[in-house]
């Protein structure tokens, strides 16, 4: 054979700007614990701890670390769920509504001071199933009707918040099931069951993310959905799966809130959503998908919770706390993704 043609070639990094980041970023999502690809988030967290510790000696006390972990439990559960959606490049805004709905639903189904229901642990099952169903509905509308997930879940946010308000009985239901409330009250080594639950969930989620088709294909969808479709994978099913997980864990977040405050509150989910997304992104999970993961999100949650705790500890002006939080979000995300900067990178 006469090979008359010879082909000039580009460098490998240039070969595929479509997957442009992949070319430059060598170390990447891989099994093992060295998965936090950039030191940015951890450095942010440590820097913050150092600053607060130097400002107030109480900050690094055992009691305060316990307080931080207690406060991080619920946001962590929600952020873990959110991670599954974000790595696919989608977004779920319905968190506040779903958590609120879960909270109020649980408090009227479990033994309480207002309604006659007492489903016990069954109530938790019903609520988790509800969260799962709402998440699956989100995913179905998004994947099969091809509507942007941002819009679908925005609408679902309003719907679930409305349903939560409609379910509210005339008085605030107080949860009487002592075993359930005990989840938040009984301490082992100074931490409540909620913290252990969150840690266990994180572990399970990590396994799911790294070791199962659902987790791995989710990453692949975030990296390049078209290719995954080309491979004949039923992408829509995985999308629905991720949203279902997110809905279920958000529902769990609502349940845990109920255990913490001991009453049903139709606004219990307030303030979970944007900090939840911010936590994921601070940890290095990209909104464009394909990168990040459960551990990243946990670090992000710790950054935000530590920040809030530290601002109270150091006595910062309460009026300015939101402003400081906003600045920290911007700086932390910039720091955690600084190594990805390229001229041809597209960030929307």
């Amino acid at each position: 054979m006469t090979q008359a043609q010879l082909h000039a070639h580009d460098t490998s990094a240039m070969a595929s700007p479509r997957r442009g980041e992949a070319g430059t970023q060598r170390r990447s999502g891989h099994i093992g614990l060295g998965v936090l690809k950039s030191a940015g988030p951890i450095v942010s967290l440590l820097a913050m701890i150092l600053v607060f510790a130097s400002l107030t000696p109480n900050f690094v006390s055992v009691a305060n670390l316990q307080a931080i972990l207690e406060s991080a439990a619920v946001p962590a559960v929600v952020a873990i769920g959110m991670t599954f959606v974000l790595v696919q490049g989608s977004i779920d805004l319905s968190g506040e509504g779903v958590a609120s709905l879960a909270n109020i639903l649980l408090s009227i189904l479990i033994a309480n001071s207002v309604t006659a229901n007492d489903l016990g642990a069954g109530a938790i099952g019903v609520v988790l199933a509800t969260g799962l169903a709402i998440g699956a509905l989100n995913g179905t509308l998004y994947a099969y009707l091809r509507m942007p997930s941002l819009i679908v879940t925005l609408a679902m946010w309003l719907i679930t918040l409305g349903l939560a308000a409609l379910l509210f009985p005339s008085r605030q239901p107080q949860i009487l099931d002592s075993g359930f409330v005990g989840l938040a009250l009984h301490k082992h080594l100074g931490l409540s069951a909620l913290v252990y639950l969150a840690v266990a969930l994180a572990f399970v989620a990590f396994i799911v993310e790294r070791r199962t088709k659902l987790g791995r294909i989710g990453f692949a969808i975030g990296a390049d959905e078209a290719l995954v479709r080309l491979a004949g994978v039923n992408v829509n099913a995985y999308k629905v799966g991720a949203f279902a997980i997110c809905g279920c864990l958000t529902g769990l977040g609502g349940i845990l809130t109920a255990a913490q405050i001991g009453v049903g509150n139709p606004l219990a989910g307030e303030g979970l959503l944007f900090p939840g997304i911010a936590a994921c992104v601070i940890g290095g999970t990209l909104l464009s998908g394909g990168r990040g993961g459960v551990l990243h999100s946990l670090v992000g949650v710790l950054v935000l919770v530590t920040l809030r705790n530290g601002l109270v500890q150091t006595g910062a002006n309460p009026l300015l706390q939101k402003a400081i939080e906003g600045m920290v979000i911007v700086v932390a995300v910039a720091a955690s993704t600084w190594h990805l900067r390229r001229k041809t990178r597209v960030v929307k």
């Binding site: 107030t56 109480n58 006390s61 009691a63 305060n64 316990q66 307080a67 207690e70 406060s71 619920v74 809130t257 913490q260 405050i261 009453v263 509150n265 606004l267 219990a268 307030e270 303030g271 809030r308 705790n309 109270v312 500890q313 309460p318 009026l319 706390q321």
Partner: peptide
């Protein structure tokens, strides 16, 4: 003095921090 925005969860988180502090 901290702002709890009338909410239970926020009241709980802030109080927790106070106890530690």
């Amino acid at each position: 003095t901290q702002i709890g925005n009338w909410g239970q969860t926020e009241g709980q988180n802030i109080t927790r921090t106070w106890i530690a502090r």
